[in-house]
Amino acid sequence: MSAMSIKNLTKKYKDIIAVDDISFEIPHGEITALLGANGAGKSTTLNIIAGILDPSAGEVTFSNMSYKKNYKEIKSKIGYLTSDMSLYKDFSIYENLMILSELRGFNKQYAKRKIDELSQYLNFKEVLSKNFNEISSGQKQRALIASSILHDPEILIFDEVTASLDIVISKSIMDFLIFEKKKGKAIIFATHILSEVEYISDRILMLERGILIRDTTFCELINESKSMTMTETFCNIFAGEKIAA
């Protein structure tokens, strides 16, 4: 059963169509990768799925619940993270996580236990008392991941979270995603790094100028293409689309 279904999603900014009539589903226990060139509409799509943006048309449903009617219910089942997100700089990581758990409706003791657990699990316990802009980007990212999974979400929406991180930290995050997938969570993530796609994705969605051009798996793509490298394969697909358009 799919965790989330997206139907005829469209987003317009004045005259520009950022996302054009996309429909797909995000199933449980699978990692879906969203690929596309810059400005293809990946982030917009993920923002709309996460309920940060309102779509111009179409709807996002989560087991028969829609944002219009069950805004809070859906929000409490989604974990969302982007590379440009940031915690409050005036507060320490611990205070930040406490505020967020308060908004999630946790009581103080549970929140403390949860933060303790997560900081151990994601290995940033030593910086809990520091302010957000005093720590390294790897630690920042791990703290942000903690903030997005505080409430054990059923769906994880990650938007280029590894963009500015080194390979070791990126791999640890990827491993974390695989671990979460095995728990039966639905995961959708956008990225530019093809090795990550190869490493963890079960399914690939390709976007080009707001239109969903492919819905395949990694193996299918490799079989289909004649070139030897991943990069060439993707470039060929996007170039082909551009010529066709």
């Binding site: 805004y71 809070k72 997100m85 940031s86 915690l87 409050y88």
Partner: peptide
């Protein structure tokens, strides 16, 4: 400016 608004909006808060 600080990109913290998404952190707020991802919570179940209208």
């Amino acid at each position: 400016d600080q990109n913290t608004y998404k952190v707020l909006l991802m919570n179940p808060v209208s």
